[in-house]
Computed example of a mutant assay.
Amino acid sequence: MRTVFFLITCLLGVTTLHAQTNLETGGRVAPLSDKGIRLIGAASFVAFEFEGTDCQLTLASVDDYPHHNYVSLELDGTYLGRIRIEPGRPAPYSVAVTKSGRHRLVVYKATEAQNGFVDFLGTTAKIVAPGKAKKRKRIEFIGDSITCGMGNDESALPCGSGEWYDQHNAYWSYAPITARALHADFLLSSVSGMGMYRNWNTENSESEIMPEVYGKLALRESDTRPFDATFQPDVVTICLGTNDLSAGDGKKPRTPFDAKQFTDNYIAFIKMLQQRYPKAQIVLLSSPMLNGERHATLMAALDTIQAAFPTGTLRRFTFQPMEPKGCGYHPSKEDDQKMASELTPFLKKLLDEK
Rank of each mutant, 00 (worst) to 15 (best):
M196Q: 02
M196N: 01
M196H: 00
Y197T: 01
R198M: 01
W200K: 02
N201K: 08
N201H: 10
N201S: 14
N201G: 08
N201P: 04
N201T: 07
T202N: 11
T202C: 12
E203W: 04
N204H: 15
N204I: 09
S205M: 11
S205P: 05
E206I: 07
S207V: 10
E208Y: 13
I209W: 00
I209N: 02
I209T: 15
M210Q: 10
P211C: 07
P211G: 07
V213Q: 04
Y214M: 10
Y214C: 07
Y214N: 06
G215H: 13
K216V: 07
K216D: 07
L217P: 15
L217M: 14
A218I: 05
A218G: 04
L219R: 02
L219Q: 08
L219F: 04
L219N: 03
L219Y: 02
R220S: 14
R220F: 12
E221N: 12
E221K: 14
E221P: 04
S222E: 14
S222I: 10
D223P: 14
D223F: 11
D223T: 10
T224I: 13
T224A: 15
R225A: 15
P226D: 05
P226R: 06
F227P: 05
F227Q: 13
F227C: 12
D228I: 08
D228L: 10
A229I: 09
A229Q: 14
T230C: 13
T230Q: 15
Q232S: 13
Q232H: 13
Q232E: 15
P233A: 10
P233K: 08
V236L: 10
T237N: 06
T237R: 03
T237S: 09
I238M: 12
C239M: 14
C239S: 10
L240Q: 02
L240E: 03
L240K: 01
L240T: 02
T242F: 01
T242A: 06
T242L: 03
D244N: 03
D244H: 01
L245M: 05
L245R: 01
S246V: 04
S246F: 03
A247P: 02
A247E: 12
D249F: 10
G250V: 09
K251Q: 15
K251V: 14
K252F: 11
K252H: 14
P253D: 08
R254H: 10
R254L: 08
P256A: 05
P256M: 05
D258K: 00
A259Q: 14
K260V: 06
F262Q: 00
F262G: 00
T263L: 07
T263E: 06
T263P: 12
D264G: 01
D264M: 00
D264V: 01
N265Y: 00
N265D: 05
Y266Q: 07
A268V: 03
A268E: 11
I270L: 14
I270D: 06
I270W: 09
K271V: 07
K271P: 09
M272N: 14
M272F: 12
Q274V: 04
Q274M: 15
Q275K: 15
Q275G: 15
Y277M: 12
Y277T: 12
P278K: 03
A280C: 11
A280H: 08
A280D: 12
Q281E: 13
Q281Y: 02
I282T: 05
V283F: 04
V283H: 04
V283G: 04
L284R: 02
L284A: 05
L284T: 02
L284Y: 07
